[in-house]
Amino acid sequence: MKRTSFAQWPCSIARTMDLLGDWWTPLVLRDAFYGVRRFDEFQQALGIARNTLADRLKRLVDEGLLEKVPYQTEPVRYDYVLTEKGRDFYPVLLAMTRWGDKWLATEAGPPITVHHLACGHDTHAEIVCAECREPLTPDDTRMRRGPGFPPRLAQRPDVEERFARQE
């Protein structure tokens, strides 16, 4: 069955899910942040089928989140290294971790903790306003159409209603 592409939808969540919308891709990125760089290391750490891993790594390279860097010439073998675009995914993983720690951890507590080297404390992600640094919650934020919203969709009654509810 062919899945629907969200790549052209006027929504950053939909576009992100189009790129990362399977359970292996975020785990490959997670392991890249753990320092895993080689195909066999990813395969061993995740227990993922080789063909599935090859597909996910190719997609992440094609989309610019990972870069292939040769570490051996005979035969050619590569490290998969996070790019700036890939490193920018880290806050997304931290937000997912925070939610999972709150709602899915066992009574023993979270399986992994985030340790902030700069202050020496274990911590968790918080989503804050880039201007005032206050936490962002559903109660004190609203979604509005941005400059990239397609004009052809802006006048549709369902779209107008969706954004009118946000005002």
Rank of each mutant, 00 (worst) to 15 (best):
A125I: 03
F42K: 02
E107S: 12
Q43K: 08
A105D: 01
E63Y: 11
T123L: 01
P151Y: 13
V128D: 12
L117C: 10
L29P: 08
M1F: 00
A49I: 14
L46H: 05
A130E: 15
D55E: 15
L66S: 05
T106V: 02
K68R: 06
W9C: 12
P91M: 08
D31P: 06
D79T: 09
P91W: 04
F42Y: 10
D88T: 01
T113P: 00
I127L: 05
E67R: 04
H121C: 00
D55M: 14
W9K: 02
P70Q: 09
I48Q: 02
G47Y: 01
L94A: 06
A118Q: 03
Q8F: 12
Y80G: 13
D31T: 04
R3G: 05
M17E: 12
C132Q: 03
A164P: 04
P91E: 02
V81M: 03
A130V: 07
Q72D: 07
L153Q: 06
T83H: 08
H115A: 13
R156A: 00
A154K: 00
I112W: 05
E41S: 06
V61N: 01
D79M: 03
L20V: 00
Y78R: 08
D79A: 05
W9H: 15
R59I: 06
L82A: 06
P70I: 02
P150S: 03
L29F: 11
R15W: 07
R133D: 03
R145Q: 12
R87V: 08
R77S: 13
Y34L: 15
G148P: 01
C129Q: 05
A108F: 13
K2W: 11
P70D: 07
R145E: 09
E74A: 14
L117R: 15
I112Q: 08
D18N: 07
L46Y: 00
K58N: 14
A54P: 14
D158E: 15
W24A: 02
T4S: 06
D18W: 06
R145M: 05
P147T: 15
F39A: 07
P111G: 10
P135H: 04
D140N: 14
E131R: 07
G47S: 06
H115I: 04
E160L: 14
P70M: 05
L153G: 02
Q155T: 15
I112C: 10
E126H: 04
W9L: 08
H116A: 05
G21Y: 07
E126L: 03
L66Q: 03
D18S: 02
V61P: 04
R38S: 12
V69N: 08
L65V: 13
